[in-house]
Nucleic acid binder design. Structure first.
Lengths: 224, 224
DNA sequence: ATATAAATACTTGTATACAAGTAGACGAGT
DNA sequence: ACTCGTCTACTTGTATACAAGTATTTATAT
């Protein structure tokens, strides 16, 4: 479990939520782990209240399971839920990139372009850890161009189920190809080419089509 | 604001969430209304804690706006958010009904059939108020048949933005046509006819294509 | 040794207390 | 009349206290 400092202006609740989310995604909190509200509050230097509020939010997406009077537990990886979130992302990303083809203005395109140049810059520098936040920001830019930010927020929270499987197979995905996908998505939006955009989303998703059975054999204790 | 009794087995938090959700949907809590955590807790016979937890959840979908040290307010109707949720529902319902065509088994179909017969029964009895819960349950059955229940939960919460506009124009929608749509959706799923299913979803949604400008002129104080 | 029961140490759910900040009322001073 | 400042009554954010239930441990009795 990695605990970083509270950011300036961040409320206690947001802080607890960020730490929990990051650690669940990175598997610093392993599936099955008990999360005591009191204990976590101590570790974060907070009271139970904001910690509890954060846990409740994560319970809503079933990434944390709460058993009254027994405890909170990081949910085991449920392949059905992973498949469900993968489905959701594919459906949404396709619909939204098509919408972005219609709606993106020059400012949207400029921000995407800048983001991609940064991705390519860090790719050249072999600084892969810098790419994930940019990756996320790039997809957010597409949603924003399509005026679908509320949907992006939903997508982000629920995508934790997917992200955590991706963490287990991180080496299978080549950053170079991902960055290239992003550049092509940008080109598709700039050219208002919906069909190409949709194709790219599918291709992009397929890069994460890791062999789940392989991961499951390697980490059986993580799975439901 | 209509307050019904707490259901058996319902936690205080779920109770507060249900009362808030129902009243926001029905406009018993008008857009712009202040919601004091203390006051609502008193009215529900609870403490602030569970009430606050419910409010936080609704803040996540921006149907309640929280201003620290100032108050919580039922958000004004934001046409952009309404459009966004309408978009989301169309996209999801199409993808999910197509999936249901592949996956629905005999039990799923039997439950849908029974639900529709009830809808038709109450339609004949002119008991329109009985139809809304059945309507919701029917769509849930489709999502369940497609193994997309987590997505359905997300859809439900976010759909509040859409529901509240529908409340303002409830007379524009004819129950008879809606029930007929549902029967046809069932037939489409039973016949594994994806194309027809998708068509029906679009047609179904279009029935709620009320003239938003008309509503806006009638209730300007409700809009952003 | 084993079974049973009481004690204990946890857990979350809910209630209450305190901290910090906002906004409006009200009055004093100009 | 008006501006400014103070006071008051609120608000949410956070911390703590208490209630109720679970599960394990420990001790006791057979």
């Amino acid at each position: 479990m990695i605990i970083t400092d509270k950011l300036a202006g961040e409320t206690a609740r947001d802080y607890a939520l960020r730490i929990l989310t990051d650690n669940i995604r990175s598997l610093g909190l392993e599936p099955g782990t008990a999360i005591s509200e009191n204990e976590l509050a101590m570790e974060l230097g907070l009271s139970r209240t904001p910690v509890r509020e954060a846990i409740i939010e994560l319970s809503k997406i079933q990434i944390i399971e709460t058993y009254p009077q027994r405890g909170n537990f990081v949910a085991l990886i449920d392949p059905d839920l992973v498949e469900e979130t993968r489905f959701l992302r594919r459906i949404l990303d396709i619909a939204v990139i098509e919408e972005a083809c219609d709606l993106a203005d020059e400012e949207d395109l400029a921000e995407m372009s800048e983001n991609i140049e940064l991705q390519e810059f860090y790719l050249g520098k072999q600084m892969a850890d810098k790419i994930y936040p940019l990756d996320n920001a790039f997809h957010k830019l597409i949603y924003r161009a399509a005026a679908k930010e509320l949907i992006f927020n939903m997508r982000s929270t629920v995508m934790l189920h997917f992200d955590r499987v991706r963490t287990l197979s991180v080496e299978a995905v080549k950053d170079m190809k991902i960055v290239k996908d992003h550049r092509e998505m940008y080109e598709a939006i700039r050219n208002k080419d919906k069909e190409w955009g949709a194709e790219l989303v599918v291709k992009h998703m397929n890069r994460y089509n890791v062999d789940q059975q392989l991961i499951r054999d390697q980490y059986p204790q993580y799975f439901k």
